[in-house]
Simulated assay, not measured.
Amino acid sequence: MAAGGNPLLSNNPAITGRGQYQDGRAGYAPVPPQNSYGQGRFGQGQFGHGQPGHGQSGYGQPNDLQDLYNRPSATPSQTGRMTFDDVIVKTTMTLGLVVVGAAIGWFVPGLMLVGLIGGLVLGLVNAFKREPAPALILAYAALEGLFLGGISSFLEGIYPGIVVQAVVGTLSVFAVTLLLFRSGKVRATPRAMKFFLIALAGYALFSMVNLGLMVFGVTSGMFGLNSANIPGTSIPWGLVIGLLAIGLAAFSLIVDFTSISEGVRNGVPARYAWSAAFGLTVTLVWLYVEILRLLAILRGDE
């Protein structure tokens, strides 16, 4: 599972629209090239006199110009630029495949390992691709669904009702994060991003060490070091680590929202709605897994 791939998306010039116009203004689309005489590509400005294709435009009559000015402005969808609706539709498709895959994985738990490995590989591939590949993104969503279905079925058999709690918790964190972002109270500022990346790297390192200890049988708990108590207390390490991970996943949503807003504002191509959908899917899967694990640790004494 490719957790935290979103900073890569947020640094993508195509997503953030951090290009410039030829006159220095920030934006996505470049100004049409000029020749050495300061004229357009065909020797004259767009609305010159005469015939097009010979250094002049075909809009020589005043009535033609007036008709052009009276026409309604083209919408983002008509100009091939990304919109919020594009992101919503693409995200709905990816999350729908996650649910379908989860339903299959729930009844066929043996596919969980396939989903885990396949989702990890495709997550990394999609995160580092310069151009979004819809087929690979949808395949990633389906494989992650297999993994989520298998692990959810397993934990539900031990702690009845835990899956519903995890789903409600995930939706609640998503809703609160979105409201905070829309209110302007939380933003992915450069300083906040530095702390986020440092904390994310530390968490990734801890997760790798913990996984290694579990694989080689050094720890006996279901979640490795997360199941052990903090020395001198009855508080499991998993409670502290889990809350940190949920906080990181929540801020990762802020990074996603910021990237999407900048992309729409700067008019990036519509195909990058798939990148935005991929980022949101990665973060929501990560958030659900962390909440599910935290609940399992808290209910470990049942």
Rank of each mutant, 00 (worst) to 15 (best):
M1F: 06
M1A: 07
N6S: 14
S10H: 13
S10N: 14
G17N: 05
G17Q: 04
R18H: 08
G19A: 04
Q20Y: 11
Q22C: 07
G24H: 10
A26H: 06
Y28S: 07
P30Q: 00
Q34K: 15
Y37R: 15
Y37W: 14
Q44E: 14
Q44N: 13
G48I: 03
Q51M: 07
P52Y: 03
H54A: 05
H54F: 10
H54L: 07
Q56P: 00
G58Y: 01
G58W: 02
Q61I: 01
P62W: 00
L65K: 13
N70L: 13
N70Q: 14
R71C: 02
R71Y: 08
Q78R: 05
T79D: 12
G80N: 02
M82E: 04
T91D: 10
T94Y: 00
L95M: 15
L97A: 03
V98Q: 00
V100C: 01
V100L: 11
G101K: 00
F107N: 09
V108F: 08
V114N: 02
G115S: 03
G115V: 02
G119I: 02
V121Q: 03
V121Y: 02
A127C: 09
F128S: 09
R130S: 12
P134R: 04
L138R: 06
A139P: 01
Y140T: 01
L146P: 01
S153D: 12
F154V: 11
Y159K: 11
P160M: 12
G161T: 05
I162E: 06
V163N: 00
G169C: 08
L171T: 05
F174V: 14
L178C: 10
L179I: 12
V186Q: 12
R191T: 15
M193G: 08
L197M: 13
I198K: 03
A199V: 14
A204G: 13
A204F: 11
F206Q: 10
S207E: 08
S207Y: 08
G212W: 09
G212V: 05
G217L: 01
G217Q: 03
T219N: 04
F223I: 02
F223D: 01
N226L: 15
S227P: 10
A228F: 14
S234T: 15
P236Q: 13
G238I: 06
I241R: 04
I241D: 05
T258K: 12
S261K: 14
E262N: 15
E262S: 13
E262Q: 15
G263Y: 03
A270Q: 13
A277C: 06
A277K: 00
T281A: 05
V282H: 09
V282S: 12
L284Q: 09
L284H: 08
V285A: 04
V285L: 01
Y288E: 03
L292H: 04
I297F: 06
G300M: 08
D301F: 14
E302H: 13
